[in-house]
């Protein structure tokens, strides 16, 4: 991950900053903050309820958010590139409704899965077309497509739920080395994307686009193509996450993943991704996903009002972003 840690600063043209000791570089980082919060959350949660500290329960609880967490990893890359995508949860619903609908009307499973994946890609492509092709702000475009995709899912599936075949149900119950399969997928995707972002030219170019798109273009980076790839990846990840959710729930409804965009953005932000682009790491989002799960699971198992969870999440988001900003502004000084 070391390449990712130094790259943004180098690109920001702060090479003249005084040399810092190693511990300073490691400690004054947003990911460190996320890790500290995670440890604190675990301690607090185990104080709140004697039933919390049980690794298999925490892993099981993670399966409830694992689909969002997988998409949040890709979203982190999109945000680093200076864009945002609020439509993935709606994309999950629409692509999975299409998949389920095809499957229920007798299309063989592999083709139904292909339909779902292509639908996810197409939705990513539409976002990309409006943002890159038509130069519209991604935040408003994806608020629009969020509403549109969810609405189309509602038209296709109505208010009914579509059953999944028995054999398709329960991927979250399959254990890979003692870890639920969806959690294992999340870990693997984190590793792969983390390596891509930190260790490849493609990854470095993403940081450069987010730091200064015009400069990146003059430096010969194909900014439009990279952003297109990211939006397509987003669509694909959403479609896959939708199908994992379908397997976990056993049925598909238009409200699958409703409100998930908030959780995904929260994971990226809590992990120290900078909302204006150019900064952030997969490691941060990875830790933040666990932080969110620990916080909400700890409070749920203590039978606290969900209202307190909302309040804590809101405060956490603001605190995290204040800390991230302070850390980055110190790093720049």
């Amino acid at each position: 991950m070391s390449a990712a840690e130094t790259t943004p600063q180098r690109i920001a043209g702060r090479g003249a900053a005084p040399q810092r000791s190693l511990w300073h570089v490691i400690l004054v980082r947003p990911e460190t903050m996320t890790l500290v919060l995670l440890v604190l959350a675990v301690i607090l949660a185990s104080q709140l309820s004697p039933f919390f500290l049980d690794i298999s329960y925490i892993l099981r609880s993670f399966t409830l958010s694992a689909e969002f967490a997988i998409v949040a990893l890709v979203l982190t890359m999109v945000i680093i590139a200076g864009e945002i995508d609020l439509s993935p949860a709606a994309n999950m619903a629409l692509s999975t409704c299409l998949f389920a609908w095809a499957q229920a009307s007798g299309v063989p499973m592999p083709i139904a899965i292909a339909i779902g994946l292509v639908a996810g890609l197409a939705m990513g492509a539409l976002n990309a077309f409006m943002v890159i092709g038509l130069q519209l702000p991604s935040i408003i475009v994806t608020i629009g497509t969020l509403t549109l995709y969810r609405g189309l899912a509602q038209i296709i599936a109505g208010d009914k739920s579509i059953r999944m075949p028995e054999w398709f149900i329960g991927i979250d119950k399959v254990l890979v080395f003692g870890v639920p399969a969806t959690v294992a997928i999340f870990v693997v995707v984190s590793l792969v994307l983390g390596l891509i972002l930190a260790g490849t030219i493609f990854g470095r170019q993403i940081y450069q686009i987010g730091t200064n798109e015009v400069a990146a273009r003059y430096a010969g980076i194909r900014t439009r193509r990279i952003k297109l790839i990211l939006f397509l990846l987003m669509g694909l990840a959403a479609a896959i996450a939708g199908m994992l959710t379908a397997s976990r729930l056993g049925s598909v409804r238009y409200d699958l993943g409703l409100g998930g965009e908030l959780q995904m953005v929260l994971m990226a932000m809590l992990g120290g991704t900078y909302i204006f682009g150019g900064r952030g790491t997969i490691l941060g989002t990875f830790l933040a996903a666990w932080l969110l799960v620990v916080v909400s699971t700890g409070m749920t198992v203590a039978n606290l009002l969900p209202a307190i969870q909302l309040t804590v999440l809101g405060v956490l988001l603001i605190v995290a972003i204040i800390a991230t900003n302070l850390i980055y502004s110190r790093a720049q000084r």
Binding site: I139, L262, V265, L266, M269, I275, F276, L305, P306, A307, I308, Q309, L310, T311, V312, L313, G314, V315, L317, I318, I321, I322, N325
Partner: peptide
């Protein structure tokens, strides 16, 4: 005062104020 992006601040207070309403 903290020079934060408004979209994230208000996303946070969206949750915070709703939580306070319940409390």
């Amino acid at each position: 005062f903290f020079r934060l992006p408004s979209i994230i601040v208000t996303l946070g207070t969206l949750n915070l104020y709703r939580g306070l309403t319940f409390i």
